[in-house]
């Protein structure tokens, strides 16, 4: 860690911003990763399933976004995804899909 002072300042400033000024806080650089982590319970860590529910890892982002939108809009029948897909914005779906598309199959 060569530049202690700047690291300290960065932490302090970021922490202050995150806690006291949400609207002006810089977005976490890990937003896509954090959003995608919600899917791992059923679809496996980083989208790599070890069971019957399909993997998301390495799937084309466009396909994943389309599926999520179709679930949300009731165009694709589902047991549970039609309910969960309604919880996310187009932007969030795009972030998650992009993240999974970059994960190894």
């Amino acid at each position: 860690m060569p530049i202690r002072t700047s690291r300290f300042v960065a932490i302090a400033v970021a922490s202050a911003l995150a806690n006291f000024a949400f609207s002006q806080a810089p977005a976490s650089p890990h937003l896509a990763r954090n959003l995608a982590a919600q899917c791992a319970n059923c679809h496996g860590t980083n989208g790599k399933s070890v069971a019957e529910v399909p993997s998301l890892a390495g799937q084309p982002a466009s396909l994943l976004v389309q599926k999520m939108k179709d679930y949300r809009d009731g165009k694709l029948p589902a047991s549970i995804m039609h309910q969960l897909a309604k919880g996310y914005s187009d932007e969030q779906m795009a972030l998650m899909a992009d993240y999974f598309s970059r994960q190894p199959k």
Binding site: I11, S28, P29, A37, Q38, G87
Partner: peptide, 28 residues
């Protein structure tokens, strides 16, 4: 899901990164 939001925050706090201000969790 709590574990992952907390993990992201703790990593950010200990490495000088930005804490996610818009966490989400889902339940099944």
């Amino acid at each position: 899901q709590h574990g992952k939001v907390c993990a992201a925050a703790v990593v950010a706090l200990l490495t000088g990164d930005v804490v996610n201000a818009t966490p989400m969790v889902a339940n099944t």
